[in-house]
Design a protein around this nucleic acid. Structure first.
Lengths: 210, 210
DNA sequence: TAGAAACTCCGTATAAATACGGATGTAAAA
DNA sequence: TTTTACATCCGTATTTATACGGAGTTTCTA
């Protein structure tokens, strides 16, 4: 028979348990492991466990879903990740797709959709619902994936700005001139299409840059 | 027999279903309804359904958990709300306790804790785990519940600041002098214990003021 | 290898925010 | 009723941020 072995990675105990319970009714799907963070999952992955799919939450402590996806790609794992997230934010979806997710489900998806996604991915297809695809496309048409918007230095500067440091303070902490930080600030404002610090921090918080 | 009838209010279909499945194993607990937002729950409440407990999510569309709690208090409902949230933020917890929640569970609580909470609340007690209580106490000791921190005017100004408006722009929009807005800004910074706009917006976003 | 980013730095100027230290009338709460 | 918080306003001064426009070096990539 064709049994799909899957792992659940989610930091919410009740969600994990409930999901396992829910899936136990389906004979072709078997939950073989249940972990609560990315690190734990990576350990399992490295132990060469035989599994087909991992239902992966994005927001997890220690190591989040994005990092897990990246690592899985590096290790060219054969386990196919389906992301289960509560964010129907185009940015999240796009990042997951880019990082090698085989599917993206919202936590308010229904059981039918969940099993459909698992079965499709199990057969080698990808599963992104119409709603999800649309969000992603809309997002990509207006702005690039946030990961790529800012350079490393800019991201670092943004972090310090959000801590409440002034340009001068940031400059001395990063051992560069204040002019440099001013330029970084200007570039960040431009890239995120905002006109001052207040708007900047709000937007950065929204798209989870900080 | 003493069967506890409960309602689940959560916008995540999978969570709802999973939870129901999980609880179905317990004979003394019966899930009688499952709704996906606050409005839907209020309708059920008004239909005089017989239920003992509602497992209430905070972040829901249309009408969130806080509003539901407030409304339930107004209607002096006999259904006892247990909040299930993913935020272990002292501010959230304190607001719920203040609004009449009988319990507060994190979504990463385990099954044992869930059933324990349900049974205790069913018997008339309240259930706040040691961890949750601690968070709440820590929070309240350092700052009052966010709802009460800022005055109405200050909240309004904060909103406009976060939109990227300058002091002058805000002043003309609110038909007052720029000085007034400067004072408001200063007071807001002081109340939230931050030293500039960047930190302000970050904090405001964090405690969901904007 | 050529070109594009990224990172660094500079000058000049204006706009905006923050830090002081006041003041008044009104409304709500103790 | 007395106190307290709120909302409004003012002056002076300094610090920060933003807006221009430019340029050299390195590093990565097509």
């Amino acid at each position: 028979m064709n049994e799909t072995k899957l792992i659940i990675a989610d930091d919410h105990e009740l969600f994990r348990k409930g999901l396992a319970e829910l899936l136990s009714k389906h004979e072709d799907i078997k939950v073989i492991k249940s972990v609560e963070d990315g690190i734990e999952f990576m350990n399992i992955l490295k132990s060469n466990i035989e599994a087909h799919i991992v239902l992966l939450d994005i927001t997890m402590p220690n190591m989040d879903g994005f990092q897990v996806l990246k690592e899985m790609k590096n290790l060219s794992s054969t386990i196919k990740p389906i992301v289960i997230s509560m964010h129907n934010d185009g940015n999240y979806i796009a990042k997951c797709a880019k990082s090698g997710a085989y599917g993206y489900l919202l936590k308010n998806a229904d059981e039918t959709e969940l099993t459909k996604a698992i079965r499709m991915v199990s057969k080698g297809s990808k599963y992104f619902s119409a709603e999800i695809s649309e969000k992603m496309i809309n997002f990509m048409s207006v702005q690039s994936v946030s990961e790529d918007i800012l350079s490393n230095k800019e991201t670092e500067v943004l972090g310090l700005i959000s801590e409440g440091l002034t340009t001068k303070e940031i400059a001395s902490r990063l051992f560069v001139s204040a002019r440099t930080i001013e330029t970084h600030r200007a570039n960040i404002l431009k890239k995120l299409e905002v006109k001052n610090t207040a708007e900047l921090i709000k937007k950065a918080a929204k798209i989870n840059l900080i």
